[in-house]
Design a protein around this nucleic acid. Structure first.
Length: 836
DNA sequence: CTAGGGTTAG
């Protein structure tokens, strides 16, 4: 037991004068700033503690936790401050309470200042760091603590696994001296979370005893990773089921988009609990079927807070703020969740004033609430307001900093972004990515590169996972030069052996369009795991080298590593992209025959694509009908694409209709259908499409392309008129145009629709962003080196045709990455074989 | 007061 010594002084230190002043003027105090107020010396501080009984202290402690659970930090602190004597448990309750309310700073101060720590204090603090995504700090505490119990070990395992470090989690798991049932469950759940069902199953089969949680973890793991059949198998095998088991199956259907199957199961029996109702309702909300969701909501026997929150967020995200507001007012109780939903609903619909009104009214805010409001301001380019909130918020977390960095970067204030990046206490992969993306999108490639180098210099920060993260950032923004630099540093650091980094390296080369260097890296990897093989296969497939992909697959079969469903997606899409119909069909059937795999939605999508492209539209439809689940928008999209290639307007319309039902905002599909009409000469339908798009408020994503030349990224958009070298580029394009027409190129104005006025059509076509970037590349990339262009959307058919001819005329190799795949143009042809 | 399974917000 301790006297109440330093709590007051402690808090005064925590708050700091600046914050205290700022909050003093706030007319609408949140509990967080009340906590600060209490730091002023209160009355009755000099009573000598009478000696309370143990039972009384337990009561006090319970009251503290209770306050904390209900986000009443100030009340908890008041109790803590005035209680006659404290135990370690009291301190622990405060720490845990603050952590639950996103006050990591206060929690740590209490932890540091407390007179005696027990095992729980350490464990609580570690779990706090885990929740704040700070695995390094968590690990430091874990290593420092004087002794560890099962909970300490389990917390670390779960912490690593939750944040994607499943190997580190396994390392801890293997090292722990005594494993309990929960330890096994945590580790299995870690594998599940990281989509490694194979490893999860191995552990599950090996574990000495199982309880209902172990079984349920496997059910939901299989279900959420798309193996509904396996989930059902486990479900039937398990000795004692509870409602969680049932809900695992139900939400498995829901998350795999099989709403009708979910519904059938749901109607089959009547003893579903509230969680089940909520899950089904959320499924409908997620698929924008608000009418169905509302019908369930009305029918529900017992609505809880989650039910109300789900329904409210459904309306809010759908833009129906008036209905959301109505339900919000009707709801019997509201929690932080409810309020935050309203705030972010208004924010997402650009209604900043309303958002702010709700935000000011809400009684308890957590970091999510603050971040939502900040994001709202920064999306509306109101960085001053965003900054004001950011500085006032008591519970800043990494997300808050990241939101601000992104905001500044997107508003062109790159230096402010960098300043925050430098100042922030902890960075995660998002922070680096945000900063790098800011540099990359703003054209500051040298600075992006420099940031990588700084990452390396920081030494400690540049561990294996940082390399992995940096490499995958390079892959995303197709920064090949940066990626190569990292590769160099990797070799210097002696890191290049492991699969972890090796796979990232491989993926980087693939996504940056350098498939040959990817293969070099692949060859040199001493150990190849499943991901290595999958990455290489998919890389070749995406680049249109289907036969090479299949060669890799055949070598993989010689090893002891078993292909999984991801492998097969790569193999099937290789066949599809390369037009290898019979091979594709063979492989599809071999999945079950040779490996006992059940084909998932993605495999069917590949097959529909494969059959469709090859002109077997009937077979594609037949396959769709025979599938064990409902077709999703991607499958109809594949069919629509195939219909376009083969000029089947009727089928295209049917597919499009289904897509618009499921994804009314998918602008790419509207364009695809328009192109189909245009190709058939149905101009009035083309016009109607344009009207429909306008009526439904579908915005076509503007297309842009970029190219890296001498460490600088050049971005182009349709009809670009801002690039400093535009005159030269346009003149060069005119010249090319004449040349390629001699080769038989016909401007395909008629087949391509873009949302520009009719008379501008031919003019605009010549100036699509990809053409501009290619022309710029030819003019500026030294001879003998490939020209690498990236486009955010699918490449336009006419441009594709033109670039093929251009590659022949200028005798250059042009590599174009679009949103779907890679195109290698060489000597007048393309690696995609005109199928894409 | 701390670790594992099914539903809601960034």
């Amino acid at each position: 037991m301790h006297t109440r010594q330093s709590a007051t002084r402690l808090l005064r230190n925590v708050a700091g004068n600046r914050l205290q002043k700022r909050l003093a003027g706030n007319s609408n105090p949140s509990p967080q700033n009340l906590a600060v107020r209490l730091s002023k010396p209160g009355p009755n501080k000099n009573n000598k503690p009478s000696s309370p009984t143990d039972a009384e202290i337990v009561k006090w402690n319970k009251a503290i936790s209770d306050h904390m659970r209900n986000s009443r930090c100030e009340a908890a602190l008041h109790l803590f401050d005035t209680m006659p004597s404290r135990t370690t448990v009291s301190w622990n309750a405060m720490i845990s309470g603050y952590l639950n309310n996103d006050r990591f700073d206060l929690a740590r101060r209490f932890f540091d200042e407390m007179p005696d720590r027990n095992l729980v204090s350490w464990n609580v603090m570690i779990s706090g760091y885990v929740r704040n995504y700070d695995l390094i700090a968590a690990r430091r505490l874990f290593d420092e603590m004087p002794e560890r119990d099962v909970v300490s070990w389990n917390t670390m395992i779960s912490g690593y696994a939750r944040n994607g470090f499943v190997d580190e989690a396994r390392e801890i798991f293997d090292r722990m001296p005594v494993k309990k049932l929960v330890s096994w469950n945590v580790m299995i759940s870690g594998y599940v979370r990281n989509h490694n069902m194979h490893a999860a199953r191995c552990l599950f089969d090996k574990m000495p005893e199982r309880d209902v949680v172990s079984w349920n973890t496997m059910i939901s793991g299989y279900a959420q990773n798309g193996y509904v059949n396996e989930a059902r198998e486990i479900f039937y095998q398990m000795p004692v089921k509870n409602s969680v088991s049932w809900n695992g199956i139900l939400s498995g259907y829901i998350q795999n988009g099989r709403m009708e199957a979910a519904r059938q199961l749901f109607e089959l029996n009547s003893n579903w609990d509230t969680v089940s109702w909520n899950a089904l309702m959320a499924g409908y909300v997620h698929r924008k079927r608000l009418v169905d969701a509302r019908m369930l909501f009305n029918r529900m026997p017992g609505r809880d807070l989650v039910s109300w929150n789900t329904m409210i967020s459904g309306y809010a995200q759908d833009g129906n703020l008036s209905e959301a507001q109505k339900l919000f007012e009707e709801s019997p109780t509201r929690d932080v969740f409810t309020w935050t939903t309203m705030v972010s609903g208004y924010v997402q619909n650009g209604m900043l004033v309303e958002a702010r009104r709700v935000f000011d009214e809400m009684p308890v805010k957590n970091s999510v609430s603050w971040n939502a409001m900040i994001a709202g301001y920064s999306q509306c380019r109101m960085m001053d307001e965003a900054k004001e909130l950011f500085e006032a918020m008591p519970c800043r977390n990494i997300s808050s900093w990241n939101t601000m960095i992104t905001g500044y970067a997107q508003n062109g204030e790159i230096d402010h972004a960098r300043q925050l990046f430098n100042e922030m206490p902890k960075r995660d992969s998002i922070s680096w990515a945000a900063m790098l993306a800011g540099y990359a999108q703003g054209g500051y490639s040298e600075r992006a590169l420099h940031l990588f180098i700084q990452m390396n210099r920081d030494g400690e920060r540049m561990n294996r996972s940082a390399f992995t993260c940096a490499l995958s950032t390079c892959a995303d923004i197709a920064a090949l030069e940066c990626g190569k630099q990292l590769h160099g540093r990797l070799v210097q650091a002696g890191y290049e052996m492991g699969c972890f980094v090796g796979n990232a390296l491989l993926a980087m080369y693939c996504k940056c369009g350098s498939i040959d260097e990817a293969y070099d890296a692949f060859k040199e990897m001493p150990e190849k795991d499943l991901v290595t093989w999958n990455t290489m296969i998919d890389g070749y497939a995406k680049h249109g080298f289907g036969k090479k992909a299949l060669v890799i697959f055949e070598s993989m079969r010689m090893t002891s590593i078993k292909p999984d469903d991801v492998t097969m997606v790569g193999v099937l899409s290789a066949c599809s992209h390369a037009g290898l119909v019979d091979k594709g069909i063979d492989y599809f059937y071999s999945m079950n025959r040779d490996y006992g795999m059940t084909a998932k939605a993605q495999h069917y999508t590949c097959m529909i694509d494969l059959l469709g492209r090859a002109g077997h539209l009937e077979d594609a439809q037949a396959l769709m009908k025979s599938m064990p689940f409902e077709p999703d928008a991607t499958m109809w999209g594949a069919l629509l694409g195939a219909s376009r290639i083969h000029g089947n307007t009727k089928l295209g319309e049917k597919a499009a209709e289904r897509i618009f039902e499921m994804e009314p905002d998918n602008s790419g599909m509207y364009v695809l259908l328009s192109n189909l009409y245009a190709a058939a000469g149905r101009w009035s339908d083309v016009g109607k499409m344009r009207v429909t798009m306008r009526e439904r408020g579908v915005k076509k994503v503007p297309g842009f392309s970029w190219i890296e030349v001498q460490n600088k990224v050049h971005t182009f958009s349709v009809g670009d008129s801002v690039h400093p070298e535009r005159e030269k580029i346009y003149a060069f394009l005119e010249e090319l145009d004449l040349e390629i027409k001699k080769l038989g190129y016909v401007s395909a104005t008629k087949t391509v629709l873009h949302d520009v006025e009719e008379e501008e059509k031919e003019h605009m076509l010549k100036y699509h962003s990809e053409k501009l970037a290619v022309a710029f590349g030819i003019l500026n990339v030294p001879h003998g080196r490939p020209i690498r262009v990236i486009k955010n959307l699918r490449v336009c058919e006419d441009c594709h045709n033109a670039i093929k001819h251009i590659s022949k005329i200028v005798n250059r190799s042009i590599i174009l990455r679009d949103s779907n795949r890679f195109h290698h143009f060489d000597g007048g042809g393309c690696s995609c074989g005109d199928y894409w």
